[in-house]
Structure formats: C-alpha cells, structure tokens
Design a protein around this nucleic acid. Structure first.
Lengths: 244, 244
DNA sequence: TCCGAATGTCTATTGATCTAGACAACTATA
DNA sequence: TATAGTTGTCTAGATCAATAGACATTCGGA
C-alpha cells in the first residue's frame, strides 16, 4: 500500500493527524469487517511513521473512548461517531443515511392488523377503531442496529404493506407498490429517554443507554396522512438533524 | 485585555493556532483601522505566549503572502482572504456578503440615459435603441473596494433608478421603489482578465491585478428582463461561488 | 539629530514530538 | 504446548516547539 500523506513541520503533530485519519476511517466503516483497527505495525507502515507515533494517535482515540486496546489481541473499535439522520419534509430513511453507511439493513420483526387507538387515530385523521396495519422493524447500518420503529398504515388503502415491506425492504418502495409515488413529512416530535428492556435487546444496547424517540406523520401530496411512526434511535450511534 | 485561549499539548503547535487566529482577524477586518497587524509584543501579551512564538506565526502568514513585516515600522497586511460571493437564482449583493464583511458600501459613480446597444438589447429582450438607464457603481466591504459595475435598466419602467439607487444604496430597494418586489438571476457569464486602467483606479488595484468580469441578466418573476449588469470583481479580494 | 517603537538576530534552555530498537506480556490458534 | 501475532514498556537520541533574554537594525517623528 502506498504510504498515506501526513504533513510534517506544518505545526500539527503527526500523531494528531493520524488520530484524525483513523477516526474518520472508523466513522466511514473502513474497519467494520473485523471491528478492529489494523495492527500498530500495519498503521505505522501505512502512514510512514514510527510505531510509537501510531501508538500516540491510538492513545488519543482511546482517551476519547473510541477504541480500546487489548494486549495480544489488537485494538477494538468501541463506538463509531454518530450517524447523522436528516429530518426534513422529504425524510427517507435510506437516502438520508446515504454515504454515511455502506450497507443499510432493514428487518421486519412482525406485523398485525389493529384498531386505531385515540392518539394514533387523531394523528392519522381517522376514527378510533379504524383498522390499521402495524409494522415492527429494526434498521441497521453496516450491521449495527440504528433504530427500531413501530409504524401504522390505514389497512384499507395499504392492505399489503407488511408483505411489500418484507419483500422490498423499504417503506418508500412499499408505498410505491400501492400506487403512492410520493409523500412528505408532516410533523415530527422528538424526545430522549433511557432505553427500555425491549429496546436494549433490539438495538443491542447496554443497560442505561439512551434512545431518541420520534413520533412522526407522513402524508401524501394531497395532505392525507398515510403513516404514523414511533421510531427509537440509539442515541450513541445517531444524531438527528432538522432541516427546515 | 484578557489573554486569548490557545490549547497546549493537543498536538497543534501554538504558532499554528495563533497564525490561524490572526488570519481570521485580518479576514474579519479587525485591523483595518491601521492596515497593520498589532506589534509582536502586543500579540504575545494578547495570546499569553513568547514573542518568538508570535514571530513564528507571523512568518507563516508572511510565507502565505498575507502580511509583510518591515523592520522599524511593523507588520503590514498585504491582502485579506477572499470574500465569497454567492451566485444563485436569488443573487443579492448585500445579502450574499452577509457576515463576511461588517460594512457594505455602495457608491454611485454616475448615471445616464443611453440607447440600447446590440448586445445589451438582445440580453434585455428589447429593440436596439430602446432608452436605458445606465448606472456606474462601486461596492466595497469594510472600506475596501470589491467590485465595480455598469448596469442597464429599461428607462420606461425604471425611470427613477439612478435617484432611488443613490438614495437607498441598493438595487433591490430601488427596484422595490418602482413596485418590483422580487426578481431572479436568469444568466451569468464569467471571465477573468487583467484589470484595465479605469478598473485599477476604481478598485484601488496594483498594475497587473486581475479582475473577474460577470455579465448577468436579472428578470422579474414573469421572466421579463429588468437588469443587465457588467460587474468586475477584484480577483484578489473575491471568489465567486456558483449555487445551483 | 535624537529617541521611541518596532522588527531582526543570536544564544541558551526546557519540554514535546518523533524515531529506533529491544524485549516483555498477552491472545489465539495450530 | 509451541508459535505467530499483537500490544505494553523501557531506553536513547534527534528534531521541533516554546520560553527567556540580550542586543542590533530600521523607521518615523519630536
């Protein structure tokens, strides 16, 4: 491999430059295959510096809590920088994550037909008791769980929602399969709290972890609500960006 | 003055941090009153470092060509970083410069009523010979000339253009005074060349300096052209940013 | 012409950064 | 249990960064 460029005598210490580069590589998911940073000797060769210089960089990252070195095994990635999730009028899960993750995984945990409860009925503009399709999903980026959601769709209009979502792996595509080509985000509310037991399990979090919960309504272009979602994001892996 | 914060032992040399701070201060126009950087001893006290450390920072800035030190006199500012001028469908001179300069100055050099020449007539969609108001202006940021323009407006529709511009100091406001509340940029062409004698004088440039010349057409919301402008920007003080 | 103010240059010292090498300690695997 | 691979620790030296002080040089104005 060609040695990567690091500036010398420019007033920025080599270990600082290398730490920044490794942090970026972790954030990019370059090391996701193993979940570990390459060995110190490999990094030293890659950057064209002494192994001790790489060790200074890794020590800085360990201080940040980003990696943890284990003697004899290697240096493991403890956490990646938060993935930014944009929320705008045209919020789309897959598109929003874009280049931040290489691979987006969606998993349908289960589905059911339920009558609309008061809160959900009001949000969707239907009478309480109206039949809704309920989907439970987990989404992950590069194999790491990012969010879990429970979503509701009017059963009459979107009868095959569960099957289409399971087949296509995307709400946008499942909507399209029902003849709905476009939709917009109408409202989003955000709260943050400690994760419950179910969320700890689904998102593979440690006890005491934080989730951000959004309750959102999407509507078709005529303004008719088509989806009510309660999404919980792993707060240590995601940040929400509101775009106005 | 309270000593400004510089980080120690964070992998970034003090002289580099101080050079960046001084560059920013120059760009902000903090030293425009004198056109000079404060004395080395003053800067050393301000940042709480040794004079030699400040000298390293100033040497880096001199290497960039941003400042020039003269023994016995002080360190003079050679140039400021370029002001970014955004060009989009809603290009507005004052708004575009925004926070980059503290004070925007506009000066009406002269005005006349002239018949439309071939090129300008075509751009404005009028017959050659149609009477136009011609305005010659110079705009400056924080007292430094940034651009000079010659603009043409249909005389029939914008009869009081010269007076309103002189009074209001803004094309947008002068349009509003004629009942035109909104307009959009239709086309922009950009060339770069050496400054002519007149431009050297107006923009206070040194012989051999470069100007960027834009020829632009603005139109009202019905698409009817309302302005043709030939603007020349001092290339060492401005950069154009095209926003699509 | 003299003097204050500013930059230019030099020496010396201290601490941070980087390199180099050697070896210990630990892990996983054959 | 070996062995390869990896991180941890130590010593030593070279270079860069920062401080400290002294003095020279140049400019502009009183």
């Amino acid at each position: 491999m060609v040695a990567k460029v690091v500036e010398r005598q420019m007033g920025v210490a080599l270990w600082r430059q290398i730490a920044d580069r490794i942090r970026l590589a972790i954030s990019n998911g370059d090391y996701d295959a193993t979940g570990m940073v390459p060995p110190e000797t490999a990094l030293a060769a890659e950057f064209g510096v002494n192994r001790h210089t790489v060790r200074s960089a890794l020590a800085a990252l360990a201080e940040e809590g980003l990696v943890r070195a284990v003697q004899g095994r290697g240096t493991m990635i403890e956490r990646k920088d938060r993935v930014s999730y944009p929320i705008s009028r045209r919020t789309r899960f897959s598109q929003g994550l874009g280049r931040q993750v290489r691979e987006i995984g969606t998993k349908l945990l289960g589905h059911a037909q339920v009558p609309a409860s008061g809160e959900i009925a009001a949000a969707l503009g239907v009478h309480p008791g109206t039949p809704l399709i309920e989907l439970s999903t987990v989404s992950s980026g590069d194999g790491r769980p990012l969010s879990t959601a429970v979503s509701y769709y009017p059963a009459e209009r979107f009868a095959r929602m569960a099957e289409e979502y399971a087949r296509l792996g995307s709400v946008t595509k499942a909507f399209a399969a029902h003849g709905l080509d476009d939709y917009v985000r109408v409202s989003t509310e955000i709260v943050a709290r400690h994760a419950e037991a179910e969320e700890l399990s689904l998102l593979k979090l440690s006890p005491g972890a934080i989730v951000m919960e959004t309750r959102s309504v999407n509507a078709d272009l005529e303004g008719c609500p088509v989806e009510y979602s309660r999404t919980r994001f792993a707060a240590d892996r995601m940040k929400l960006r509101i775009e106005t």
